[in-house]
Design a binder for these strands. Structure first.
Length: 771
DNA sequence: TCGCTCCGGGG
DNA sequence: GTGTACGGAGCGA
């Protein structure tokens, strides 16, 4: 009796310009690695055969695919001639990808009278994919089928160096681990040992034979650094699995090019983290954000690493090991969507953390569908189109409102695309709509399974990653339609139909809510904030939303998306929520400005909390306290300073300074220090000196009058919408209690309806909130 | 409002 | 020599 075959999945593909393709597969159960070598022809879609006219008879034109061993071949995908003028009617192929491309580019130079050999980037009339993409499409494969995240061998390594640049420093330590039990340190205490250490690292890579190599900022630091050191020390940096093993860089337009090598997928957790828009994308901060940092985590400043290694080497060793451990844990979270995405789209895993979801993920799926169907790839949309209108945004009320509910239309644009059968007009196979529909259906299944308590944790994670990946593609679909020339199957008119329908759906939601007595606050594209007329339980709120949802057309659902005790609605997309657990959520530029001073933000948070609790005396107390602390100079210069970016270097500013002074640059100039564009400095207004570069963080010589006024103008002003104008003036405009003043205890927190943008006069109908 | 440049992140 | 382009902030026109 033989065991059933163990399922395998692709972990890496290397497709070279000469047609050689190597595919690495892992067996999910046993971990065994299989290597397969094949040859592929290169293929490219073309509108016409003009550039290849020089080939004459050596270009065979036929409605059939090329025979094995064929030379240059053009498959006419519309032999009946019924095809749009600018469609990509021919599938060109050649003995190798390079030969085909060289032939096309050389032919184009002659046929179009160009003076230099063009590249495909500046050559219209072709659809060309990377060699690996070509192979995955022709063989109908994708990465990672049957594999879960830890089935591939994943290695993490991290360098400790004496400087940030390989010209100024060297590597003295490399921490290495993998997901098969390796965890080790390589060290070069003396400079003379660095080359051997790099060789030892490469040996380790060869022996452990990872499919995936990971680190945080590996493309921008570790790989360029170690490759440069290896070159300088005469060590061949053979990281890859075939040929000379040398890695190469992919110039993808980003400032730090991506590194790649044959047979090992190089993944940078930073690339994945950047998409999450966390306050910091650094490894330590992100690890803390996800609760991955161990209790005994060692934190070292970059500049301290060398001296710490000299005096307490154990600390640096622990630091480096914890780095690779954190990268491993972080990768499981942030790389999981890309890992799953690689099953859906014919692209290598390592390209997907950097690929845009529309052009980089969805479009290859569309091209694959046309290739499989053997149909011409459609012509792009013609000519310019009317300006594209987006979602509907409206403010209905401002001020402080109680019992807040947020509802949104689940995956609104994808749902509309699906429900209305919308897709690009040139997409004759209707593949765009089919992809969105299929992925939406499959996504629901994975979403459901991700929450299934009967499944093991690992399976649930896989389902979650899969639904995340599908969500990414599906959400990219609408943007792809409207993306203009960049998207080969873009269609502005179709994108307009999506948003128009979206505005109508949202309109219906807001009307239904109003009918049920809800006070709308703001609506934005696919969601709405509203206030219930009386306190309600979460169950009641959810029931209400379901009730409204039932009125929506087939395929569209309104979902509960959170609740809060109170909301300060300041401007459209600028609001503050006080949650039932006491957390304060600030949204929008009015509340999150990065230029804010510490003292002001501390006041604002305290005042907002009090305001949302309806406690005006406490707002006043917070204000008076900060004013008093400013006056008695409890605050330091640091607390009032703000960090600004300088737009010019000292030298450049010197040339314009005589004509027009710029406040920030002038302050830096006056400080007498050198600076270049992009430098950040802490500025504060110094008593008697105006705007000044902060040199004494613990000093107290700030300009009292300026900062007291700034507290009112920059911070208290964000509380205006919550109070009667006269009350606001009384509290913050600096007048003491006068004859006509109201006792603060009588002041109420308010809200008022807003009719529309340029609506009625601004002082109408204040209505106190019920507490 | 658009288009350009710069940054992030790493020791 | 291994492929068609990151996302946001801030600035000046």
């Amino acid at each position: 009796m033989t065991a059933p075959p163990s399922p395998t999945g692709i972990v890496s593909v290397h497709a070279a310009a000469d047609g050689q393709v190597t595919v690495w597969r892992r067996e999910a159960r046993t971990g065994t690695l299989h290597i397969e070598n094949t040859l592929q022809r290169g293929w490219v879609y073309a509108r016409n055969l003009r550039d290849l006219s020089a080939l004459g008879d050596s270009l065979k034109v036929s409605s059939e695919p090329p025979a094995p061993g064929a030379h240059y071949h053009a498959q006419d995908l519309a032999p009946d001639g019924r095809v749009a003028e600018r469609a990509y009617r021919y599938l060109l192929s050649g003995p190798t990808p390079r030969q085909l491309e060289t032939e096309i580019l050389r032919g184009a130079m002659a046929a179009r009278s160009l003076t230099a050999r063009p590249s495909f980037g500046d050559l219209s009339g072709y659809v060309r994919l990377g060699y690996t993409e070509q192979h995955l499409i022709t063989t109908r494969q994708t990465y990672h089928q049957n594999l879960t995240f830890d089935d591939p061998v994943r290695m993490q390594f991290d360098l400790e160096t004496t400087a940030l640049s390989p010209d100024e420093g060297r590597i003295f330590l490399i921490a290495v681990r993998d997901n098969r039990g390796l965890e080790t340190l390589l060290e070069a205490r003396r400079a003379a040992q660095e080359g051997e250490m790099i060789e030892a690292f490469l040996d380790l890579v060869r022996v452990r034979d990872p499919d995936v190599i990971e680190n945080h900022f590996i493309h921008g630091f570790d790989l360029p650094f170690i490759a440069a050191r290896a070159r300088r020390l005469g060590v061949p940096f053979r990281l890859g699995r075939t040929g000379d093993g040398l890695p190469w860089t992919i110039e993808d337009g980003s400032r730090t090019p991506a590194w790649a090598c044959a047979g090992r997928e190089i993944l940078d957790t930073l690339d994945a983290v950047r998409r999450l828009h966390l306050p910091s994308s650094g490894l330590k901060a992100v690890a803390r954000h996800y609760g991955l940092a161990p209790d005994d985590r060692v934190y070292l400043e970059g500049t301290q690493i060398v001296s710490t290694y000299r005096d307490h080497p154990k600390l640096v060793r622990q630091y480096a090991l914890q780095d690779v451990q954190e990268v491993d844990a972080l990768a499981r979270i942030v790389l999981a969507p890309s890992f799953a995405l690689a099953r859906l789209t014919p692209r290598p895993y390592h390209r997907l953390t950097r690929a845009g979801p529309a052009k980089g993920v969805l479009e290859p799926m569309l091209i694959r569908a046309y290739h499989e169907a053997g149909r011409p790839f459609p012509a792009p949309e013609q000519g310019p189109h009317d300006p594209h209108r987006g979602g509907h945004v409206q403010l209905y009320a401002e001020g402080v409102l109680p019992h807040i509910v947020k509802a949104d239309v689940a995956s609104m644009y994808p749902s509309i695309i699906r429900a209305e059968g919308i897709g690009p007009q040139q997409d004759e196979l209707r593949i765009f709509n089919r992809i969105v529909s299929d992925l939406t259906t499959q996504r629901l299944h994975h979403k459901h399974q991700a929450r299934n308590p009967l499944l093991p944790e690992a399976d649930r994670r896989e389902h979650h990653a899969m639904q995340d990946a599908m969500k990414l593609v599906v959400n990219a679909a609408y943007g792809y339609l409207g993306a203009g020339r960049l998207a080969r199957l873009g269609d502005r008119a179709a994108a307009d139909r999506v948003t128009a329908r979206g505005r109508a759906v949202l309109q219906q939601v807001t009307q239904e809510l109003q009918t049920r007595g809800m006070q709308l606050i703001e609506s934005d594209t696919d969601g709405v904030y509203f206030s219930t007329p009386a306190p309600a339980s979460e169950e009641a709120e959810r029931a209400l939303i379901e009730d409204v949802s039932a009125t929506l057309p087939e395929g569209l659902t309104l979902e509960f998306d959170g609740r809060a005790r109170a909301m300060l609605s300041h401007q459209i997309k600028n609001y503050v929520l006080l949650r039932y657990d006491g957390t304060l959520d600030l949204s929008g530029a009015s509340f999150e400005s990065s230029r804010s001073e510490q003292y002001g933000m501390a006041f604002l948070r305290a005042a907002l909390r009090a305001m949302l609790e309806g406690d005006v005396p406490e707002v006043q107390a917070a204000f008076e306290q900060v004013m008093a602390q400013l006056a008695d100079r409890t605050y330091t210069n640091t607390a009032v300073a703000s960090r600004v970016r300088l737009g010019k270097s000292r030298e450049v500013y010197a040339q314009t300074r005589g004509g027009r002074k710029e406040a920030h640059l002038e302050a830096a100039w006056q400080a007498g220090v050198s600076f270049t564009a992009g430098d950040r400095v802490d500025l504060y207004v110094r008593e008697g000196h105006g705007l000044t570069v902060m040199t004494e963080p613990d000093g107290h010589d700030y300009d009292l009058k300026h900062y007291q006024a700034a507290l009112v103008h920059n911070y208290a002003t964000r509380l205006r919408k919550a109070l009667d104008p006269a009350d606001w003036d009384q509290l913050f405009a600096g007048r003491g209690p006068g004859l006509f003043d109201r006792p603060v205890q009588q002041m109420k927190v308010l809200w008022r309806p807003v009719r529309d943008e340029d609506g009625p006069d601004a002082t109408s109908s204040f209505i106190p909130t019920v507490r």
